[in-house]
């Protein structure tokens, strides 16, 4: 009974992670410009793969494995914003334009920060 419950929970986590990754991939294709695509990929995609890694740690039922899986989980959650922010800053500094329908560009009025 307990084992079946835990298997169901792990299956739910795996499916949730896969759906997050699918949402990120759809957003990567549907959103209009680089910066909004980055928003889809770096948030939803990271959470998807991190959830699947967490499912591995829960499935093993071993404290060491769970600790490694949690380390990977937090590693992904910490590095994804850093790389996305760095890439966005580099693209903005070297002059890739925003989409036509974007409503606010706060860095436009502050050229010293670019």
């Amino acid at each position: 009974m307990i084992q079946m419950l835990s298997e169901t929970a792990i299956a739910m986590i795996v499916l949730l992670g896969a759906l997050f990754v699918l949402a990120a991939a759809v957003g990567l294709n549907r959103l209009p410009d680089l910066y909004s695509r980055m928003h889809a990929a770096s948030k939803a995609g990271t959470v998807g793969s991190a959830l699947m890694l967490l499912a591995v740690g829960l499935h093993a039922g071993d404290l060491g494995t769970l600790a490694r899986a949690l380390a990977g989980f937090f590693f992904f959650l910490l590095t994804a914003p850093v790389s996305a922010h760095l890439l966005a800053m580099a693209a903005r500094k070297s002059g890739y334009p925003l989409a036509k329908q974007s409503v606010l560009d706060e860095m436009k009025n502050r050229p010293e920060s670019i």
Partner: peptide, 11 residues
């Protein structure tokens, strides 16, 4: 960005 996402999918 898409390559970064590919790494996540492979993970």
């Amino acid at each position: 960005v898409a390559l970064d996402m590919l790494v996540g999918i492979v993970i």
